[in-house]
Design a protein around this nucleic acid. Structure first.
Length: 305
DNA sequence: CGTGTTTGACCTGCGC
DNA sequence: GCGCAGGTCAAACACG
């Protein structure tokens, strides 16, 4: 169940049919019990909707700030704009079968966030499309030569290629956490301070270390400087945290204690709960069996329908 | 020894 | 059809 406004929801589950306010005509004891459960569920629904609304506002705020900070590809510190070459339009085969890439894109231009932004006017229709490609721009420490996007997943590198007009080699990764996971990631550093990761597909498993990222997200909430990037896809902006500068990882046992304490605080926070709820809801609503069963259960509460 | 990375070869699609 | 360039494969290698 995606607990948010239709127009902003990446999942199109219409439950309005089953939530008709008109009460059933007959009220047996069993039905009264069911009604109580329904009332409870509706109360939870309202509460979770509110939490989701707040979370979405937060994301929108972060996204707006990101746009201000990097209004154009040049402003992000990416490589100077290269003239459109045949290379830009050449790569159209496999990726296009999934989702057409933005036009006039030479390689992994960060400007793609514009074309893939979920905040454009046809948000609802666009958000109903299946998310296939997202892009993450991450500010990195120039001294960090690993050029790795620490996004919580376990990636296995399967190739590297030097591409035209880009001195930095492009690396190709597969998700190594689950062999069947279809997600692939391309990583290239077009600039010494900005790392661009392009994700293709969706993980069919949970993120093994997502909680750790949320822990750092809490650091942002506390006002500390947190390396943060925003992934733009058709379903909404996703906050991805760059853990390459995780200061607390440098202090041994003391740092480990800090991590534990911060994780506990984070798990207790509203942001964590809201994110958890949304992730769970997203996972559930992607399961057509679940949505069918849910719809059937709701309809059973309304025998007259 | 198992796991992950590197790297050259190969495959594929598109433009000319 | 050919050449180019991106993407993938797989053997060799490095590392803990």
């Amino acid at each position: 169940m995606m607990l948010m406004d239709h127009r902003s929801s990446p999942v199109c589950l219409d439950l309005s049919v089953g939530l008709s306010p008109s009460p059933p005509p007959k009220m047996s004891a069993e039905m009264a019990d069911d009604k109580a459960k329904t009332t409870t569920l509706e109360a939870n629904f309202t509460q979770l909707s509110e939490e989701n609304r707040r979370l979405r506002e937060t994301i929108a705020y972060l996204y707006a700030n990101h746009q201000v900070a990097s209004p154009s590809p040049d402003a992000t510190g990416s490589s100077p704009p290269s003239p459109p070459t045949t290379t830009a339009s050449r790569k159209r085969s496999r990726d296009d079968s999934i989702e057409p890439p933005p036009p006039s894109n030479s390689g992994d231009a960060i400007s793609n966030g514009k074309a893939e932004s979920p905040l454009h006017s046809d948000g609802f229709e666009g958000s109903c499309r299946r998310i296939k490609v997202s892009r993450v721009c991450t500010r990195i420490d120039p001294s960090d030569t690993t050029l790795t996007v620490k996004d919580g997943y376990h990636w296995r590198k399967y190739g590297q290629k030097v591409t035209r007009d880009n001195p930095s080699p492009r690396a190709y990764f597969r998700c190594a956490f689950a062999p069947s996971c279809p997600v692939k990631k391309k990583r290239s550093a077009e600039d010494s301070s900005v790392l661009v990761a392009t994700y293709e597909g969706e993980h069919n498993h949970a993120c093994p270390t997502r909680a750790g990222e949320l822990h750092d997200h809490g650091g942002a909430a506390r006002g500390g400087p947190v390396p943060c990037s925003i992934s733009i896809n058709s379903g909404g902006p996703t906050i991805t945290l760059d853990l390459t500068k995780n200061r607390v990882l440098e202090g041994g046992a003391e740092a480990a204690t800090d991590i534990k304490r911060m994780c506990r605080q984070e798990i207790a926070s509203a942001e964590f709960r809201a994110a958890l709820v949304e992730q769970m809801a997203s996972s559930l609503t992607r399961d057509s069996k679940f949505t069918d069963a849910l719809a059937a259960a709701i309809l059973r509460q309304l025998p007259d329908y």
